[in-house]
Design a protein around this nucleic acid. Structure first.
Lengths: 228, 228
DNA sequence: AGTTACAAACAGGGTTGACGGTTTGTGATC
DNA sequence: GATCACAAACCGTCAACCCTGTTTGTAACT
């Protein structure tokens, strides 16, 4: 067990019991797309499990079931692999956000539900992976370069959602934007805290506290007054 | 330029013009203490500049002006070096927090000033270093093990400060604790956001937003009513 | 004399990107 | 519509590099 370059021979091994299915001739573009997809998702999974800097190209290739040569063929360096993995991750998240936006516009979700849904995301694995990239972005220009545009895009999507949720706020300039950003910062901080302090009750309490706080600061939400 | 083990010959080079000052006979404990101190502070500085995982023992030794052998003598592995650096960092911070607590008890600081001071810290280099260790703690048991106790201690100190700032809250059980934690999470999230989005005005607005929000939620603070 | 602080060299392992070779799909040509 | 040339996907090996921890040696302190 010396060679770490070979592919894990697990993936598409046709076992002997299916003679009627010829190897299903796939087009080149199709092959590329699937392996690239596999490489990117496997990369994020490994980043979640081992941390960004402890995820080597050997790990990724092995977990994806391809050789390192193949990996380097699709992504010519570890650097761009990580960049693409980050973009892949956040763009996928942005798409999910759009689904939520649609639900809100359809009237199927209110501020309360939106916050709960957001916290579900910020306490899940995706946030942890993002956190790996975020800290790396501080000192790694390549990661930073890839992160900033998608992060801004992400925020823009949330801004639209927020606008749908509370459109009647002409009185105060920019307060809505500030409230959204503060909410996101709170969620981020809560997600970070969950790394070293697992206290679901406390998190639930903070969310409730924040909700009533928002209700007090931004009159006109669907909630009633909740001044303690 | 092949040998990375040797010390950087920059530090204590006695130039030829001081014959009357013999090497200033220092005690062993004193020598140990100073170099250990130097190693720990240099470690945190490098973690700030290059990231935790990109800081090698070679870097630390070189920046501290000692050989790697010396470093390994004081801290037998990279792992414990990082653990000690983290403890050193957060314990120093806890001491500074105590100074703030004294100022508050002396009546020299109110809630508003406390929040501003806290944001000053959460937007500074110390927070960024802590963030490096925090993300590492998720996947590195050694870091995690060192982080949790000091983090809890840190929070306990802040809890006492908070108690001094708003003692009159017998009505609602635990609300004070929740408000403190939410405040910390907000600051943490703001600090994290400052990595990829440098917008001082937005941060100032969020802080102001939170201050008035706190004033609304917790009557009895030094602030007057500020309902927008 | 014995311990401690420090220096220098060493061996071992891991990671990265480059390179040459092999298989698989694509299209052009006859 | 079979063949052949080309390109793309993919595999396995290599050299260079860096980092870590150990070990051996030396000077300083007690």
């Amino acid at each position: 067990m010396k060679d770490m370059n070979g592919a894990a021979s697990g993936g598409a091994g046709r076992s002997s019991a299916e003679p009627a299915v010829p190897p299903r001739r796939r087009t080149q573009a199709e092959r590329s797309r699937t392996t690239q997809q596999r490489l990117l998702t496997v990369t994020t999974e490994l980043v979640l499990a081992k941390g960004l800097r402890d995820t080597s190209t050997v790990d990724v290739a092995q977990a994806a079931g391809v050789s390192r040569g193949a990996l380097l063929h699709h992504y010519p360096s570890r650097e761009v692999l990580m960049q693409e993995a980050l973009r892949h991750l956040l763009n996928g998240e942005i798409n999910e956000i759009k689904v939520i936006a649609a639900a809100i516009r359809a009237g199927d979700m209110d501020v309360d539900g939106f916050l709960s849904e957001m916290w579900r995301r910020f306490s899940g694995p995706l946030f942890m992976i993002t956190m790996e990239f975020l800290t790396a972005a501080r000192t790694d220009p390549a990661i930073r370069e890839a992160l900033i545009p998608v992060a801004l895009d992400y925020n823009r999507q949330l801004d639209e959602i927020w606008e749908t949720l509370m459109p009647e706020m002409d009185g105060i300039e920019g307060t809505r934007r500030i409230a959204l950003n503060a909410t996101l910062c709170l969620l981020r901080g809560m997600g970070a805290q969950s790394i070293w302090r697992d206290d679901p009750q406390l998190f639930a309490d903070m969310l409730a506290f924040w909700k009533t706080s928002l209700g007090n600061m931004l009159p006109g939400l669907s909630n009633e007054e909740a001044h303690p």
